[in-house]
Nucleic acid binder design. Structure first.
Lengths: 341, 341
DNA sequence: AATATAATCGAAAACGTTTTCGAAATTACC
DNA sequence: GGTAATTTCGAAAACGTTTTCGATTATATT
């Protein structure tokens, strides 16, 4: 399978490789006549530039890397979608790697991408990750870098985020508005920024409404799973603290809670109202439909690539780059699980 | 940001580039002494080979392409997972592109990957796609190629599939075993192979049990969506044909049906039993839990990469390659939606 | 017709690696 | 001490492109 090269075109046309190359890139110092001839022959021979050679010469691969905790995840797969679409629109391809929420694996993935000499990296940190060496290495090498969703505030890079505190406050406020008096919070893991911020938002909402904060009403997830939701649902019934509303870190856990309540006959929202976070697809097809906080997944991906491209272009021109932060809006989606009258 | 090169190591050590290269690759014609020295300095200078140069020289990128109809999809995201994991294990990275079920886009994506000179392509066809020019081009260029899930039997390449006919038969047989007398089928689009095969399986199961096939009981999806399920649920009630069991092309549509039946008070499985296909995650968290056919998603990805790698290795050694077909097993998962006593 | 200006071309270096093949240095052997 | 065998090394070509800069040719200006 012989691929046509510039050399081949040059030889059959009796001109130099230089001229062929310049003709194809529409340089001004090649005559209309030869330009047309080159284009015609290139078309005929089905010429496509050898990207390996182009990469080597231009020192860029027109490829970016994406590292996320997990692919099989409604939120992340939507973000992937946005990134791929926007990247392609700008002539970039996307290599996707998974950290599986493991710091070790994340380090390895970063190394792989640096080795591959991608033009930039977009990343959502794994739970254990923070401002570690592998991240510092990305910055030291001045590889364009954007964080989204699960970020570390300590890392000076561009970021695409939502205002988790504000969003959580609004969710809890919604429960209060619907008449909930004793609101529990099923929070996320200890480390992740969004887990912390949503917890803070929960407390702020209580405070704002003059409701005393009670640490006994906070349940901390060991894992973000459906099963974890079931476990805490049981726990909440057992604890019997008079809880009438629950704000859950994410929809997946919330539907675990919901499923158990359904099973044992607890009325939702009658006895206990539930609101989740992230607006997973399943939330609108279960019964009762789960109220939640919508965050713009696809747009997050688009924004992330946008920021990355800005940095890529800026650095290519040798200018220093100033990281930017894009904050996208969220909204409470009211469905059946909080619809007390 | 100067990267260390072989040249640099060679100069500071006072030896040739050749020797450095060979030392790092443990060639036998370099003495233990210089080998150690090279390794030490390479380590110290944090040397990593320039992959652009390696690609150009070796004519391979250690990167494969993956084209799927959509990323945000429980089945496909699981397959992606399997492919990425297996690829990484073997030193390959994965570029993912989406066809959005559009033939035009699919052609463009194929062109992009060929241009990028990936070492191989794994693909699940879009609905409109068949044995078109862009696919023939892959084969003509002898680019290692594997189809999975939505395949075309006309394309002579390796394939990873399930036995859709057999799986569908088992699903319908299950409905019959549970006492269903009048079984409808909500089938997929006209074109896709798995849609056709599941329909055939449905008919065969009826035939095997002496139940006459009635085309009025077949509803053909215009799109594979939740909403399509709702539409057909209404239709089925309106038609009032005494249907007591439904075999649905895929879970997403099935839960649309289920949601509407729940809403208007049709008992599932009491009045109508429902079985879906593909074992989506949501099927186990809705009420009633949806019976379905499980197909091994992750394993499909692993198998697909395995076949691709076989072809890559084979072709690299200049041997002719004989396409292989891997058929993975499925199983009926019995949950609440078919649990008539 | 001579000179100045503009248009068109190509030689060559460079990107960083891999690999072939021959040369040099070392060791073994009689 | 001379030859043969073995070990160790490096020059050079090759992969295919991009770009600089000088050379050549054609056109414009007096």
């Amino acid at each position: 399978m012989k691929e046509t090269t510039l050399k081949e075109i040059a030889e059959t046309l009796g001109i130099s490789i230089t001229t062929v190359s310049k003709a194809l890139k529409n340089y001004s110092d090649v005559s209309e006549k030869t330009r047309k001839a080159v284009y015609a022959l290139a078309e005929e021979l089905n010429y496509t530039p050898n990207s390996f050679a182009v990469n080597l010469r231009t020192k860029e691969s027109k490829t970016i890397g994406l590292i996320i905790p997990e692919v099989v995840h409604h939120f992340f797969s939507n973000v992937i979608n946005g990134i791929i679409a926007e990247a392609e629109k700008n002539g970039y391809l996307v290599i996707i790697l998974q950290s599986n929420e493991s710091l070790e694996l994340e380090k390895k993935q970063v190394a792989l991408l640096i080795n591959k000499r991608v033009d930039g990296i977009i990343m959502s940190l794994s739970n254990e990750s923070n401002n570690d060496f592998h991240i510092k290495e990305i910055l030291r090498k001045e590889i364009p870098f954007v964080q989204f969703d699960k970020i570390s505030k300590l890392i000076p890079s561009s970021k695409v985020i939502i205002n988790d505190q504000k969003a959580a406050m609004e969710a809890v406020q919604h429960l209060i508005d619907k008449g909930c008096k004793k609101i529990a919070h099923i929070r996320g893991l200890e480390n992740p920024q969004n887990s912390i911020d949503r917890f803070i938002g929960y407390k702020k909402a209580l405070e704002k409404n003059g409701i005393p904060f009670d640490p006994k009403l906070v349940y901390a997830c060991k894992s973000i799973t459906f099963e974890q939701g079931v476990v805490f649902a049981k726990q909440i019934i057992e604890d019997d603290l008079g809880i009438d509303g629950i704000f859950v870190i994410t929809d997946l856990v919330a539907i675990g809670v919901l499923a158990h309540f359904n099973e044992i006959g607890i009325q939702v929202p009658g006895q206990i109202a539930i609101i989740g976070f992230s607006n997973w697809f399943v939330s609108q097809v279960i019964s009762p439909k789960l109220s939640t906080v919508d965050q713009p997944n696809y747009e997050m991906g688009v924004a992330a690539f946008g920021l990355l491209l800005e940095e890529i272009v800026c650095r290519k021109n040798g200018k220093p780059f100033e990281p930017k932060i894009v904050e996208l809006g969220t909204s409470v989606i009211v469905r059946e699980s909080t619809l007390k009258k």
